[in-house]
């Protein structure tokens, strides 16, 4: 019996704790630096992206997604499981609304505070409360099997 043709060529060895930590620190530093230099911490720039008044950041995001698609195909990156469950669309609607009115997706209020926008601490507080509420609501009422909790 031979390996499935779509399976990766060799069994993967797990990364060590140290290399995952290094990846997180490097990626975190680079992500914080990058999104700030692109302008994601600036509510005016985010609003201009969502109203198509300025296509610069939209193109940056779409261009990044396109480059990642190509790179992942070339590198044959492992597929992650993902199922369309009942929470995806409502969750995305709530998230899109929150991003549009506060200017923050989960990483952005962190760099807003780092840029000196002190009220973004309130956005972070809201995210913390929203995430606790989400887990509580799912356990108590929604009972959605969201599959792997990690995307």
């Amino acid at each position: 019996m031979s390996a499935h043709p779509l399976a990766p060529p060799a069994p993967r060895r797990g990364r060590t704790r140290g290399s995952v930590l290094a990846a997180c620190v490097l990626a975190g530093l680079a992500l914080g630096y990058t999104v700030t230099r692109i302008g994601f911490a600036d509510f005016g720039e985010v609003h201009a992206m969502f109203t198509f008044a300025d296509l610069r950041m939209l193109l940056a995001f779409l261009g990044a997604a396109a480059l990642v698609v190509v790179a992942f195909l070339v590198l044959r990156v492992r597929r992650t499981p993902g199922r369309i469950h009942a929470g995806v669309v409502p969750g995305a609607v709530l998230f899109g609304t929150g991003w549009a009115i506060s200017g923050g997706c989960p990483a952005i209020p962190i760099v807003q505070v780092a840029s000196g926008y002190l009220p973004a601490v309130v956005t972070i507080g809201g995210i913390v409360v929203g995430m606790y509420l989400s887990r509580w609501a799912n356990a108590r009422y929604l009972h959605l099997d969201r599959g792997s909790c990690d995307v």
Binding site: P90, G91, G98, W99, T123, V129, G130, N138, R146
Partner: peptide, 11 residues
Amino acid sequence: GGVLVGFGTRL
């Protein structure tokens, strides 16, 4: 906005 982002992204 933060609550919507936190709740929505996890949902």
